[in-house]
Amino acid sequence: MLVNQFLILGAVLFCIGVYGVLARKNAVMVLMSIELILNSVNINLLAFDLMNGGLEGSVFALYIIGIAAAEVGVGLAMVLLIYRNKKSIALDELSEMKG
Protein backbone atom coordinates (compact mmCIF):
# COMPACT_ATOMS: atom_id res chain seq x y z
CA MET A 1 0.00 0.00 0.00
CA LEU A 2 1.06 3.55 -0.55
CA VAL A 3 1.34 6.22 2.06
CA ASN A 4 -0.42 8.49 -0.37
CA GLN A 5 -3.57 6.43 -0.32
CA PHE A 6 -4.12 7.47 3.26
CA LEU A 7 -2.80 10.97 2.89
CA ILE A 8 -4.91 11.76 -0.14
CA LEU A 9 -7.97 10.30 1.56
CA GLY A 10 -7.17 12.62 4.44
CA ALA A 11 -6.84 15.55 2.06
CA VAL A 12 -10.18 14.74 0.45
CA LEU A 13 -11.93 14.54 3.81
CA PHE A 14 -10.23 17.76 4.86
CA CYS A 15 -11.47 19.61 1.81
CA ILE A 16 -14.97 18.24 2.25
CA GLY A 17 -14.81 19.51 5.80
CA VAL A 18 -13.61 22.92 4.66
CA TYR A 19 -16.43 23.09 2.17
CA GLY A 20 -18.88 22.19 4.90
CA VAL A 21 -17.54 24.91 7.21
CA LEU A 22 -17.82 27.45 4.43
CA ALA A 23 -21.14 26.46 2.96
CA ARG A 24 -23.21 25.60 5.99
CA LYS A 25 -25.31 28.11 7.79
CA ASN A 26 -26.53 25.95 10.63
CA ALA A 27 -24.04 26.13 13.51
CA VAL A 28 -24.40 22.46 14.41
CA MET A 29 -23.58 21.52 10.83
CA VAL A 30 -20.48 23.69 10.95
CA LEU A 31 -19.35 21.86 14.07
CA MET A 32 -19.86 18.53 12.30
CA SER A 33 -17.72 19.71 9.41
CA ILE A 34 -15.00 20.65 11.86
CA GLU A 35 -15.13 17.08 13.16
CA LEU A 36 -14.50 15.88 9.60
CA ILE A 37 -11.42 18.09 9.43
CA LEU A 38 -10.10 16.80 12.75
CA ASN A 39 -10.60 13.21 11.65
CA SER A 40 -8.69 13.74 8.45
CA VAL A 41 -5.79 15.04 10.53
CA ASN A 42 -5.90 11.92 12.66
CA ILE A 43 -5.72 9.68 9.62
CA ASN A 44 -2.62 11.55 8.50
CA LEU A 45 -1.00 11.28 11.91
CA LEU A 46 -1.50 7.52 12.08
CA ALA A 47 -0.30 7.01 8.53
CA PHE A 48 2.89 8.92 9.29
CA ASP A 49 3.20 6.90 12.46
CA LEU A 50 3.28 3.65 10.54
CA MET A 51 5.58 5.14 7.94
CA ASN A 52 8.15 6.21 10.53
CA GLY A 53 7.70 3.32 12.89
CA GLY A 54 7.01 5.53 15.89
CA LEU A 55 4.10 5.91 18.23
CA GLU A 56 4.01 9.64 18.71
CA GLY A 57 1.33 9.98 16.06
CA SER A 58 -0.97 7.69 18.02
CA VAL A 59 -0.38 9.75 21.14
CA PHE A 60 -1.30 12.94 19.40
CA ALA A 61 -4.24 11.34 17.64
CA LEU A 62 -5.54 10.52 21.11
CA TYR A 63 -4.97 14.08 22.23
CA ILE A 64 -6.85 15.33 19.19
CA ILE A 65 -9.76 13.09 20.03
CA GLY A 66 -9.78 14.57 23.50
CA ILE A 67 -9.58 18.11 22.22
CA ALA A 68 -12.38 17.39 19.75
CA ALA A 69 -14.59 16.24 22.59
CA ALA A 70 -13.90 19.44 24.49
CA GLU A 71 -14.47 21.52 21.40
CA VAL A 72 -17.82 19.91 20.67
CA GLY A 73 -18.89 20.36 24.26
CA VAL A 74 -18.08 24.06 24.35
CA GLY A 75 -19.26 24.61 20.78
CA LEU A 76 -22.64 23.08 21.40
CA ALA A 77 -22.99 25.00 24.66
CA MET A 78 -22.37 28.18 22.71
CA VAL A 79 -24.85 27.14 20.08
CA LEU A 80 -27.44 26.51 22.78
CA LEU A 81 -26.79 29.93 24.26
CA ILE A 82 -27.08 31.60 20.89
CA TYR A 83 -30.26 29.69 20.21
CA ARG A 84 -31.71 30.76 23.52
CA ASN A 85 -30.91 34.40 22.87
CA LYS A 86 -31.77 34.65 19.19
CA LYS A 87 -34.10 31.71 18.59
CA SER A 88 -31.94 30.82 15.64
CA ILE A 89 -28.63 29.13 15.02
CA ALA A 90 -28.16 30.44 11.51
CA LEU A 91 -24.65 31.79 11.47
CA ASP A 92 -25.33 34.43 8.84
CA GLU A 93 -27.77 36.07 11.17
CA LEU A 94 -25.01 36.63 13.66
CA SER A 95 -23.70 39.81 12.18
CA GLU A 96 -22.48 41.33 15.44
CA MET A 97 -18.99 40.82 14.11
CA LYS A 98 -19.62 43.49 11.52
CA GLY A 99 -17.64 46.49 12.59
Binding site: I8, C15, L91, D92
Partner: peptide, 22 residues
Amino acid sequence: DLNNKNWAAGIPVALLLLGVMV
Protein backbone atom coordinates in the same frame (compact mmCIF):
# COMPACT_ATOMS: atom_id res chain seq x y z
CA ASP B 1 -32.29 26.45 4.56
CA LEU B 2 -29.14 24.83 5.91
CA ASN B 3 -26.73 26.50 3.52
CA ASN B 4 -25.42 30.01 3.29
CA LYS B 5 -26.63 32.22 0.51
CA ASN B 6 -23.28 32.06 -1.20
CA TRP B 7 -22.50 28.47 -0.34
CA ALA B 8 -21.19 27.90 -3.84
CA ALA B 9 -18.15 29.99 -3.02
CA GLY B 10 -16.99 27.09 -0.86
CA ILE B 11 -16.66 24.74 -3.82
CA PRO B 12 -13.82 26.48 -5.64
CA VAL B 13 -12.00 27.11 -2.40
CA ALA B 14 -12.23 23.46 -1.39
CA LEU B 15 -11.25 22.27 -4.82
CA LEU B 16 -8.31 24.64 -4.93
CA LEU B 17 -7.13 23.40 -1.53
CA LEU B 18 -7.57 19.82 -2.61
CA GLY B 19 -5.65 20.41 -5.80
CA VAL B 20 -2.75 21.99 -3.99
CA MET B 21 -2.59 19.28 -1.36
CA VAL B 22 -2.87 16.37 -3.77
